[in-house]
Structures are given as C-alpha cells and as structure tokens.
C-alpha cells in the first residue's frame, strides 16, 4: 500500500464485506440500470439486490459505478489496523484489486483498490 487510508468505506457485495479508501469514492447513489459505466459483476462477486452504486473517478475513462448490495458506512481505521497483502498472496494476485486488509474485527477485511477494480472490469 502506497498510502495508508484512514477513512474507509465499508460495503457489502453478496454476503461478503469489503472496504475501500473514501478518497477513491466520488459519491454514493442509487444504481442506474443499463448504464454504460456501471460495473455490475466484478471479482468481488455478483451483487444480489444491487441497491447502491459507488461512483469512482477513473480519470480519462470518466466515472464508473460499482454496483453493490449495501453501503454500511464509513470508519476511521488507525494505520495499526491496516495490513499489507502478504508476499505470497501478492505474487498470486495480479489484478491489483486487493490493496491490503483492514482489521475491522476478528477477520481481515479486504481493502479494495476501487480504481483498479472498476477500471479493469468490463461493464
């Protein structure tokens, strides 16, 4: 992780909880059906209810919306509760979508690089 985010957006896709740096999120809103810049299916899984959309600024590619089931809120996470991707896992993951982990409870929660995720995913 180049920069340890302190404010994380917590969201759910299907039954799994993820988090992402708030600084990567432009806004949160309802999903647009059939929108060209909507990412409905990603490596995070297939959302069931598709209730919310996380809008991400992808630079020249414009805005893209990651469809999720639920946005659970924002948490300020101390740097001590952030973990890098272990070396072996990093060597096996090449999509760049996993930026690290946040210890939000007993289990590590995947810290998603939203720009890498929606920028490299077909709509």
């Amino acid at each position: 992780m180049n920069e340890a985010p302190s404010e994380l957006l917590i969201f759910r896709v299907d039954c799994r909880i993820y988090c992402a740096a708030v600084s990567d999120v432009r806004r949160i809103g309802p999903t647009r059906s059939g929108g060209e810049a909507t990412v409905a299916c990603s490596p995070l899984g297939q959302p069931c209810t598709r209730r919310r959309g996380i809008v991400v600024d992808c630079g020249d590619a414009g805005e893209r919306t990651l469809v999720v089931d639920e946005v659970l809120g924002v948490r300020r996470v101390p740097a001590a509760d952030l973990r890098p991707v272990p070396a072996f896992a990093a060597a096996c993951l090449h999509a760049g979508t996993v930026a690290g982990f946040a210890m939000l409870g007993d289990e590590p929660t995947v810290l998603v690089d939203l720009r890498a995720l929606v920028g490299g995913t077909d709509t």
């Binding site: 072996f88 982990f101 210890m103």
Partner: peptide, 26 residues
C-alpha cells in the same frame, strides 16, 4: 485455522487469508 477471508480474483489454490498473531497469512 481461523475464518478464511476469500480474495477476489485469486487462483483456486489460494484459499484466502486468515489472521494469526495479528499477521495476515495466506
């Protein structure tokens, strides 16, 4: 083995990660 957190876009043999002594272990 504690609860495993699955990793998106991971190969099947990488089952995920779990925490041990505060460290994330694949």
């Amino acid at each position: 083995l504690g609860p495993i957190t699955r990793l998106p876009a991971a190969p099947s043999f990488l089952r995920g990660v779990f925490t041990h002594r505060g460290e994330v272990v694949p």
